[in-house]
Design a protein around this nucleic acid. Sequence first.
DNA 1: ACCATAGTTCGATGAGTATCGAACTATTTC
DNA 2: GAAATAGTTCGATACTCATCGAACTATGGT
Lengths: 106, 106
Amino acid sequence: MTNDYPVPAMADVELVDVLRAVADPIRLRIVTVLGDGEPHSKSAPDWGFDVQKSTLAHHFKALREAGLTRTIVDGRTHAIQLRRAELDARFPGLVAALVEGAPPTD
Amino acid sequence: MTNDYPVPAMADVELVDVLRAVADPIRLRIVTVLGDGEPHSKSAPDWGFDVQKSTLAHHFKALREAGLTRTIVDGRTHAIQLRRAELDARFPGLVAALVEGAPPTD
DNA sequence: ACCATAGTTCGATGAGTATCGAACTATTTC
DNA sequence: GAAATAGTTCGATACTCATCGAACTATGGT
């Protein structure tokens, strides 16, 4: 069936939950890549992390449930996108600070 | 003699470690209060958290070791201060976003 | 129908950590 | 010196969570 990748309403998202979501090396890296606001494939090889795809799925879920991202389903491929505008409205400057403060994408 | 409350050099502080430090309700609250850049007493009753003072000491240590704060010793009382200027230089906009995005101090 | 591909979910495991209470250190006061 | 005060440290406990592998769902291709 279609879209059951629910996201919380941004008004219900607490700052501490957002921070817990990005307080992990892999998830922080994901968020900085998603900082451009565009959808990115969930494809594990594309990301190049040294973890199994089940672990990556766990991180994607954590980001979505914390209110940071949404999932876009297209056939059998999924994309993930930062809820940039909503986040900027609710937590001004936060995403920008994360993107700018993260180590270079090498 | 007591001035063994070492802090890491700001250049060595990683963003993800800062985020892990503030990804806790009590520590996030502390940081937002310290956002004014002034020293604040470590006195447990003053903070009004519902934890023992040993727990509070643990959180103060976590903030200091993550590079967020410094400790100022004065006799038998201690104060804690945000390393505001250094943090702003290393992670522009981050502290401001935390202070602004945190729930009201009410 | 069959198989391959993309991604999720589940159970188990191990590491990290928030919390407490008690003991400890350092400083001030009497 | 003794007692009180401020805060830290330590050991134990409980809980959270990152990770893996295997099983599962869903879609697309042949």
